[in-house]
Amino acid sequence: MHNRNPALIFAADDVFLRALMFWAMFLPWGACYFFDTVDSVLNTSQPQLPEIVVSSATFPLMCQQYFIYIFSAAIKTKSPIWVDSSAVYYALSFD
């Protein structure tokens, strides 16, 4: 997936995806998505799935995404090219 568009990726993408997959191990995917077999998908007699599923990994996963954006914004406010808006020019003029 990363090699499809190398102009848009950087090293933090790998770290982010690895951390996302780590927390995904602890999420109850089977409570909302049950694609184990073809019969389970086509069987309409299954009980109704819950609308909200929370586990012990839900909060850390949300905190991870929150911290990524908050710390990214905090680091960028200290850079002079973000403060004077020249970073937008450089990002849009990248070939």
Rank of each mutant, 00 (worst) to 15 (best):
A74T: 06
L42Y: 05
L17T: 05
A87N: 11
F67V: 15
P80S: 15
L8Q: 12
S85V: 04
S55A: 06
T77A: 11
Y90P: 00
F67I: 15
I68E: 00
V53C: 05
N43G: 00
L17H: 08
L17E: 04
T44P: 10
W29G: 06
F67R: 12
F10I: 03
S93E: 01
P80D: 09
C32E: 04
F10E: 11
T44A: 07
K76S: 06
S55Q: 01
A31R: 13
S56R: 15
D84W: 09
I81R: 14
M1V: 10
T58M: 03
V15S: 10
W23H: 11
L49G: 04
F16P: 02
Q46G: 03
F71N: 10
P6G: 07
D95S: 08
F59C: 11
M62Y: 10
K78N: 07
E51Y: 03
P80L: 13
S79M: 15
P60Y: 01
N43A: 00
T37R: 01
V88H: 07
L42P: 00
M62Q: 09
F59I: 15
T44W: 03
F26L: 12
W23K: 00
A74L: 14
F94K: 12
R18K: 13
A87D: 09
A12G: 11
A7Y: 09
T77R: 13
F35S: 09
A24V: 03
C32D: 01
L20H: 07
K76A: 12
N3C: 06
F59Y: 14
N5I: 14
A11W: 11
M62D: 07
S85L: 09
P28Q: 02
L27H: 05
H2T: 03
V88K: 13
V53H: 02
V54F: 02
Y33P: 00
D14P: 00
L27K: 00
G30D: 14
F35L: 07
F10G: 06
W82I: 13
M21A: 10
A57V: 03
F94E: 05
W29T: 07
A11D: 11
K76C: 06
V83T: 14
F16E: 10
L49Y: 02
Q46M: 08
S79D: 15
F16C: 02
P6K: 10
S55Y: 00
D95P: 13
Q65Y: 01
I70V: 15
A31K: 15
Y33I: 12
A19K: 02
A74Q: 09
F71P: 00
F26K: 12
L61V: 04
F94M: 07
T44L: 11
Q48K: 08
P80F: 12
A11I: 10
F26Q: 08
V83K: 15
F34W: 11
Q48C: 08
D36C: 00
L17M: 12
T58V: 03
N5P: 04
S86T: 15
F71V: 09
V53W: 05
T37I: 02
M62R: 07
F67M: 14
V15E: 04
F10V: 03
F71Y: 11
D14M: 07
S56Y: 08
V83M: 06
K76V: 02
S72D: 12
M62H: 08
M21Y: 03
V88A: 13
S40M: 06
N43D: 14
I81C: 09
I81T: 11
N5M: 12
R18Y: 14
V15Y: 09
P50S: 00
D13S: 00
W23Y: 13
Y89V: 08
F34L: 08
Q48V: 13
